[in-house]
Design a protein around this nucleic acid. Structure first.
Lengths: 80, 80, 80, 80
DNA sequence: ACGTTTGCGCTTTAGC
DNA sequence: GCTAAAGCGCAAACGT
């Protein structure tokens, strides 16, 4: 009985993780589909991927900048 | 105008892909959360990941029942 | 002069790496040749590659004899 | 007898391929070592890898790629 | 916190 | 030329 519950607890955790992993695989398929669509519209897929990467870098830098500004603002007692 | 449409087409594709990539990041967070919960319940996370992998392998193995593979395996002394 | 030495240091490292990469490409050619020879002798190349993989897996499996893994495997109904 | 010869023929092919694959693994180790040495000398490894890649790309293709990237970047409003 | 190591996604290459 | 697979590089996660 208690053994059964222990097994269930582990099994449930494993199955939840497996479910999420499956969903992730589905998203990867979707991303792939977007790229195929882009390709069919005449776009160059590697270059699109490069552009997405660049945009992510720009966002990260922006966030970094914002965080830094917030830090300084707090230290200087600026309101938001 | 038509230039604008072309830009939109590309921008839309990129934004769709970026959205999906964000969702994938969210799922990775969820998976991580499951592992943290497992850990808090006293389970060993690396071993759980190993078990998930093994289950996936077992599922995959059910699809490789080629007679040719068995023939080669026998000739090379591979166990089953 | 000293600038020249610094450049040489970097250039030398890059060239060493490039040389090794070239050798690796050569080995890939050799592997491909073996597969072509196997094919010409009537063997099925994908199955040979599968067999090589299986042999590698068998070798690797001899190193995973964790008691914890076995425990989890039993609870999850994994075969050995 | 003839079965034995057939087995040997297949086994020999597999072993030749495995030998070459092992050598390739060795070269990968060597490349890794060069990168570690570069790192210990203060160089940035990802940038070195980028440089090697660039050197490998044909000049014409590099120009083509750069022009395409610039076009996409302009359409997406990426700064340079 | 850092360095190491594994796993995962991407790229490139091989086969059809 | 396209599809499928395998190797490579990178990034996140574990252990120190």
């Amino acid at each position: 009985m208690s053994d059964g519950n222990i097994n269930d607890q582990l099994r449930l955790l494993v199955e939840r993780a497996e479910r999420l992993i499956e969903e992730r695989k589905g998203l990867n398929e979707d991303i792939k589909d977007v790229m195929l669509e882009a390709k069919s519209l005449g776009y160059d897929v590697p270059t699109i991927k490069w552009a997405i990467k660049e945009r992510a870098i720009e966002r990260a830098k922006r966030q970094e900048t914002s965080a830094l500004r917030e830090t300084y603002a707090v230290q200087l007692g600026l309101d938001f």
